[in-house]
Design a protein around this nucleic acid. Structure first.
Lengths: 354, 354
DNA sequence: GCGGATCATGGAACCGGTTTCATGATCGCC
DNA sequence: GGCGATCATGAAACCGGTTCCATGATCCGC
């Protein structure tokens, strides 16, 4: 491959001059510039960015660590990050499926020298030792971490408040109580949503009841199993809140098989508002999280952090969720003609913000 | 940041020995290894991969160029690539939204030195000069390009055959003829699908008819517009094939607003089998493309290509599509109880392969 | 015409690793 | 005990850029 030296030789100038032409920084005579450009064109020279970033200590690349790429939620987050990055002339280095702390550490390590900063989503990583190791070396923005690192920027989805608002809504519509299908035990998002659910229940005068809490793991299958369990239960509550939409999809399938009508027999709520939620039958009441916005927030925060100079003190940004009421929690009697279906995607949906 | 020299100094060995310890290549005495590991741990040393790949000329990173990140199709493709890459210890450098040839070239250029190989999806890039420029310098796998580069690996979705099979199916169910909502004019996928549609029509004895071809651009909105146009047409055909599922979503919305029942008044088919297609009401008949498989094929092909040594001759891999028959093209009289909904996602769907 | 400022340019150090090659120590064997 | 083979190790070249600094040429004003 042709290097800067080949171009310099061909153009009969020094490599320093070639570098200057390509960076447009210092002044170069018109004659030298012409010769360099001609030589570069003739040889088909493309600069090597590994070499470049070795000396400049900058890469224009943002690293992203995700727990998984499955599911629409993370696709949307990546989309948001990629778009925000591209608007700022950055590329995105992706690494996904890091459940264990050890995986996260290894992935971050293998990015050292390749990125200017890192966006980490690690809702399953307990303790802060691993995150500290990373934050110590690489400018980082944490998204929904289980533990907060002092001085490190954080973006937090209002999981607790969102879960509480869906739960409250279900209580209002049905009189309560409400069951929950939880996320995996160690997961930060899952924990906050469970907590919000409990808050809402007790604030409406319902006592804590273990029988109302079914364990899931955010997968459609676990929602399906929980749906079967609920359907067979003796004293079925009139509503159930699924800690994410994927589980609600599975749960709705189980209910259909068991002949439980939604919302007539039971109201259902979810969390995330993934793309298919509005197309489900019945369409799903859920807490909408603007997952693109997550990325859009993370990138500028990170680039500010990655800038040389004194670090700003760790900032905390909260991304709000909002309640979207759809058919799965409608009052049964009401507006029967809407049965037709989800409607055109771009048309106005019935949305209720709290 | 600590460098290999700091570690060497602390461990009282040379940088060569530190390098050997970290790469596990040559033999190092137990004593030296211990000292190096202790020093590295104490100093918190993480190797710099920019420097490393500068001398090894390898990065363990795969570049991916996409036309856009919108839409479920490309999300799935990324997912497939990421998974295949991770299984092989590679990371993914992402760059999206490259409509124009110029953008594609710039993006590829800015990856030089950062990646071992490149996967390019550029269905809108006409001519082969830009792609040639890239292929010349970086091991590349092209996915559904508009023009074939000699000697370069290519992965091709059987657009033509898939479109033909959906069209034939619609003719069989309705007696034909079938209208089409096309993709954007210059797009490679769109062109092939249109071509397959025409083949199927003429092979069943229908003459070409411009009135049956409505122009779309792969967006939901364009499908919506086409739906309105079709609904208002004088002689409406009994079926319509949308060149992708997103447009079918829009078209179904328009039909609903116009009171056209699917499949009773009109049968509808799509292409891609994106995630929501099975959840639509009615669920959508479509040509399923395993978009994850696309990635799974591209990565090993690329890594083989990127291996030093003689280049293998450009190989061509075809990813087949298969017809998925769902309610949007069902014979109206049949099986009315299936109206219930899409069913559990993991449960068996009615699928018909040709 | 002379002295100092401005300007274009090249040499060389540097970024942080890998790897070749030379060297001295240790080993086994006769 | 001496010799060649084996082994661990460090010095130094190298990967391909950027940038500091010195240098010589040109320009300007007096």
């Amino acid at each position: 491959m042709t290097t800067i030296r080949d171009v310099a030789e061909q153009a009969r100038v020094s490599i320093a001059t070639v570098s200057r032409v390509f960076n447009g920084s210092a002044r170069v005579s018109a004659e030298s510039r012409r010769r360099v450009e001609q030589a570069a064109g003739k040889l088909g020279y493309w600069p090597n960015h590994a070499a470049r970033s070795l000396s400049t200590r900058a890469t224009d690349v943002i690293g992203v660590l995700l727990p998984e790429l499955h599911g629409d939620f993370f696709s949307d987050v990546i989309h948001g990050i990629d778009q925000a990055a591209r608007e700022r002339g950055r590329q995105v280095l992706l690494s996904s499926t890091h459940a264990k702390a050890e995986d996260v550490l290894r992935a971050a390590r293998s990015m050292r020298g390749r990125i200017d900063g890192l966006i980490v989503m690690a809702p399953d990583v307990a303790g802060d030792t691993v995150l500290r190791e990373i934050v110590r070396r690489i400018p980082t923005v944490l998204v929904n971490p289980r533990s907060i690192i002092k001085g490190c920027h954080v973006i937090i989805v209002s999981n607790r408040e969102g879960a509480a608002s869906v739960t409250r809504h279900l209580i209002e519509r049905t009189g309560g109580p409400v069951a929950i299908v939880t996320g995996p035990p160690g997961n930060a998002d899952a924990n906050m949503r469970l907590s919000g659910f409990r808050d809402a229940l007790s604030s409406r005068g319902f006592d804590p009841d273990d029988a109302l809490e079914l364990e899931g793991d955010f997968t459609e299958e676990s929602g399906y199993r929980a749906g079967k369990t609920l359907a067979d239960a003796n004293h079925r509550p009139p509503a159930v809140f699924c800690a994410n939409d994927s589980m609600a999809v599975g749960l709705l399938g189980a209910f259909r098989e068991k002949g439980i009508r939604v919302p007539e027999d039971m109201a259902v709520g979810g969390f995330d508002d993934i793309a298919i939620s509005r197309y489900l039958d019945p369409s799903l009441t859920t807490a909408h999280v603007d997952s693109r916005e997550l990325g859009a927030h993370a990138v500028p925060l990170l680039l500010e952090e990655a800038r040389p100079g004194p670090r700003s003190y760790g900032r905390r940004i909260t991304v709000n969720s909002r309640l979207i009421v759809r058919r799965s929690s409608e009052t049964p009697s009401r507006d029967p003609e809407r049965r037709g279906g989800p409607g055109k995607r771009t048309s106005k949906q019935q949305e209720v913000s709290e």
